[in-house]
Simulated assay, not measured.
Amino acid sequence: MNGFAAYKQRLIAVSRQAGVREATIQSTIPFLSLNERVIRLDRAQPGGVNNPNAIPPFAPYRREHVTADLIRRGQARFRNNWAQLSAIERRYGVEPQVLMAIYGHETSYGAVTGGFDLLDALATLAYEGRRRDLFEGEFVAALQLVDKGTPRSRLKGSWAGATGYPQFMPSTVLRLATDGDGDGRANIWSSELDGLASIAAYLRDAGWKPNVHWGIPVRVPSSLNRAAIVTRVTAPRCEAVYRRHSQWKTFAEWRALGVQAVGRTIPDAEMATLLEPDGPNATAYLLTTNYRAILDYNCSNFYALSVGLLADAIAG
């Protein structure tokens, strides 16, 4: 604890350097507490201490995150808020069912937003040091939210620092939180429409292309030469996630290779990449650039696939 007490002095210096008001600094940083549970949870993550990053099968993850209950509740919200969701789509160009699916996936439609004190959690993660630069920056951003009028008591969230209905990190709240209900405030903690509009703003910022579906399930012929479609591009981030994607080809080119859509299709000229999450001869998907926008939200193929599939089920 003595080490954490000394570290608070660094947080004070960093916050002052970022221009945080002295009153905000003095009312928060001296009273921060080290959260040992946050440290345990962080070290249990894939890539953390003594935790190999093995890839499990997709089906159990899908069963957990694309449930009948999430579909039913998402469909009800989708119907009841259709006029407002349509307005958000006109404003941002993002499919409203994808917004609803992310909202459902992240917080079970607002039911589970996290009860950790955000400033304690972020300070703890910064002190731990595994990703100090990231979490120091997010801690300062949280103080800047307080400076801008967000009540300290509202800053609750996940152990990793995500908050509100969209589960944004504080820096993302500062940058992209959006008024979706027309009351002049961007309140992602208690306004569903603000949360949904903020997710739309995020996806547009991540490169969402209007009028393009995220992807489609496909059947892949046993004759497909997978060695010939291996990607030659090294992703600048989330390399292991993107390494599982094939080269980009148009849908017409995929069809010429014998890949067949299951259900809906995408336009012949649309570019797509092939992902077989469980390897050959199992489930397979052709994914558009908008799938990449979902990956920007959470860089996990299982996450992005389950969001897309939940969105399709919500839209019916």
Rank of each mutant, 00 (worst) to 15 (best):
P96Q: 02
G184S: 08
D181V: 03
V140G: 02
G157D: 12
D296F: 08
D42G: 11
N51H: 11
T289A: 10
D117G: 14
G110V: 07
L32S: 09
R10V: 11
S153H: 06
A141R: 02
I102M: 12
P280K: 05
H65Q: 13
R10S: 13
N225T: 09
P60N: 13
A76D: 11
A284L: 06
A269N: 10
M271T: 01
S171Q: 07
S108I: 05
V307C: 12
Y202R: 08
Y109C: 12
R132A: 15
G74F: 05
V112Y: 15
L310R: 12
I39L: 03
G184P: 09
P60C: 08
R37A: 09
E22N: 09
A162M: 09
A293L: 04
D312P: 00
S15N: 06
R237D: 13
L122W: 10
Y7T: 11
Y7M: 10
A111H: 01
T113E: 03
N51K: 11
T172A: 15
C238R: 07
I39M: 11
Y103C: 14
M100T: 14
T234W: 08
I294N: 04
G137H: 13
T67H: 09
Y303C: 13
V49A: 14
L305Q: 03
V212E: 11
A311G: 13
Q144K: 15
L203I: 10
S190C: 03
T288A: 09
I55R: 07
I102C: 11
N281I: 00
Q75F: 05
G93K: 01
T28W: 01
P46G: 06
G161H: 07
D133W: 00
G3N: 15
L305F: 07
D69A: 14
G137Q: 09
T67W: 06
R77I: 07
I71R: 06
L310K: 08
R21C: 11
F58M: 10
F168R: 06
F78I: 10
V38M: 04
V49N: 08
T172W: 02
G47S: 12
L286A: 07
G308R: 00
R77S: 06
V140W: 07
F168D: 09
Y165A: 09
A160R: 05
F135G: 13
A101F: 00
P221K: 10
I199E: 01
H213S: 06
R219C: 01
A313Y: 00
N225I: 05
A23N: 10
R154H: 10
C299Y: 09
V241Y: 02
L174Y: 01
V212Q: 09
D147M: 04
V307G: 05
Y242D: 05
T250Q: 04
W254H: 07
E270A: 10
G74T: 03
L32W: 03
P210V: 11
